[in-house]
Amino acid sequence: MHTRRKVLALGGAGLASSCAAARGFSEGLARDLGRAPPHRAVLPPVHVSEERIIRIDVGLRPYRPSGFRVERVPFGDKIVVHNYGHGGGGITLSWGTAKLAVDLGYDPAKPDCAVLGCGAVGLATARLLQERGAKVRIYARELSPNTTSNVAGAQWWPASVYDWRVATPEYLAQHFQAAQFAFRRYQSLVGDAYGVSWERNYNLSDEPITRYPARENDAMRALVVNQRDLEPREHNFPKRYVRQFDTMMIETPLYLRRVEADVRMAGAEIVVGGFENVAQIQALPERTIFNCTGLGAGALFGDAEITPVRGQLVILLPQPEIDYNTIAQEGYMFGRRDGIVLGGTYDRGEWSLEPDPQAIAGIISGHKSIFGAMRA
């Protein structure tokens, strides 16, 4: 197959004139139909190399096949409101499931509330409680930058949250309700202060794209912005099928620091320390407890369904010109300001936080195959 450069080098007058005629015809037809001819977006490639790696991040997603758990249950003379098990959608869904949990559990007559956990879900829950008038104390084993949320890729879109084969219609309705609220809340945080920005995404595939980011009959389709399937001449990716859509990106280190500061400024106390058993939780002075412990809920509250899903990220030196994201079979790339995030691993049942050299090499080689083949 000839590239455009090779065709020009051949100097075939007949071929060149026929190409010009075809181009003129298509552009004229587009004008006649009231449309501009397709514009080719020549995107800059990511420079993928081992020399540009600045760190490797490993995190454990708290995954439940049936989906996240938001539930109010009696807890001796107290109540506990569970809010955990978000899989790969913890940051995305945090404000939404926090809203569900607060609606279920907050009683203005009992304003003292405990929040267990200080990741994205715990912080969002604490902040919404404060907005209702609650007096909040957070108990956490780890604070930012040592939480699972800090090592999330943090594209706003819920991914790997549940298994569609076991999720109930009731759960799916709750999932959409949480996503819808979170979608609006994050829009209010767009800007440098919270590290939230709109970016363009490109889903790359060798096969027609029908499922990502959402099927046409999925309620989540209502939250997809500016989706369009591109023609091959409209992009310079080495894939036949490319779907673009816009969504938000969250620069997690900045975002988490800012939300924690908001919570503290609104009067919350943060107590650092973990719990070994539920008796220690029952001894807390607060009557209403919001459990946002993620994977810790398995041991503390006997949730046998929750399991870790390990994700590994390669962070490259920032490239200011990379203001887009890609999602492909080879992995995903998020063009954040604090670094280029390369990911795509999904190790279910793996508890180790040690990087897997083979997986890291796979992430690097997969992205080299994409960005090294981008057309000029």
Rank of each mutant, 00 (worst) to 15 (best):
R4S: 13
K6G: 06
A9G: 08
G14P: 02
L15D: 14
S18Q: 12
C19M: 11
C19T: 15
A21G: 12
A22L: 14
G24K: 12
S26T: 10
E27K: 09
L29V: 12
D32N: 11
L33K: 11
G34C: 09
R40K: 08
I53E: 08
I53Q: 08
I53K: 10
I56W: 15
V58G: 05
L60N: 10
L60K: 07
L60A: 04
Y63M: 04
R72H: 07
I79Q: 14
G85M: 02
G85K: 00
S94R: 07
K99H: 14
A101S: 07
V102K: 05
L104E: 05
G105A: 03
D107G: 01
A109K: 12
V115Q: 06
V115L: 02
V121A: 04
A126E: 08
L128R: 06
Q130I: 00
G133Y: 06
K135A: 11
V136F: 07
R137I: 06
A140G: 07
L143H: 01
S144N: 11
P145G: 04
N146R: 13
N150T: 03
A154S: 10
P158N: 02
P158K: 00
A159R: 11
W164C: 11
R165K: 14
V166D: 01
A167Q: 04
A167D: 08
T168D: 11
E170Y: 13
E170V: 12
Q177H: 10
A178D: 01
Q180W: 15
Q180C: 08
F183T: 02
Q187S: 08
G191Y: 10
Y194P: 07
Y194E: 02
Y194H: 13
G195V: 03
V196G: 08
S197F: 15
W198N: 01
N201G: 03
S205P: 08
A214N: 04
N217K: 09
V225Y: 12
V225N: 08
R228C: 05
R228F: 10
D229K: 08
E231D: 12
R233N: 12
R233E: 13
R240N: 07
R240T: 12
Y241P: 03
V242I: 00
R243V: 00
T247V: 11
T247L: 11
P253R: 05
L254A: 14
L254R: 15
R257G: 05
R258G: 03
V263K: 02
A266T: 02
A266F: 03
A266L: 10
G267P: 10
E269A: 10
V272M: 07
G273T: 14
E276T: 12
N277Y: 11
V278W: 13
V278S: 10
A279P: 05
Q280D: 03
I281H: 13
L284T: 00
E286A: 05
R287I: 00
F290Y: 11
C292T: 04
G294V: 00
L295Q: 09
G298F: 05
G302Q: 00
D303P: 02
I306S: 06
I306K: 02
T307F: 05
V309I: 05
G311I: 01
G311F: 08
L313K: 10
L313C: 02
L313Q: 15
V314C: 14
L316Q: 06
I327S: 15
G331C: 02
Y332I: 00
M333P: 03
M333I: 00
F334W: 10
F334C: 02
G335N: 09
I340S: 11
V341C: 07
G343Q: 03
Y346K: 14
E350G: 05
P355W: 13
G362P: 03
G362M: 09
I363H: 06
R375C: 04
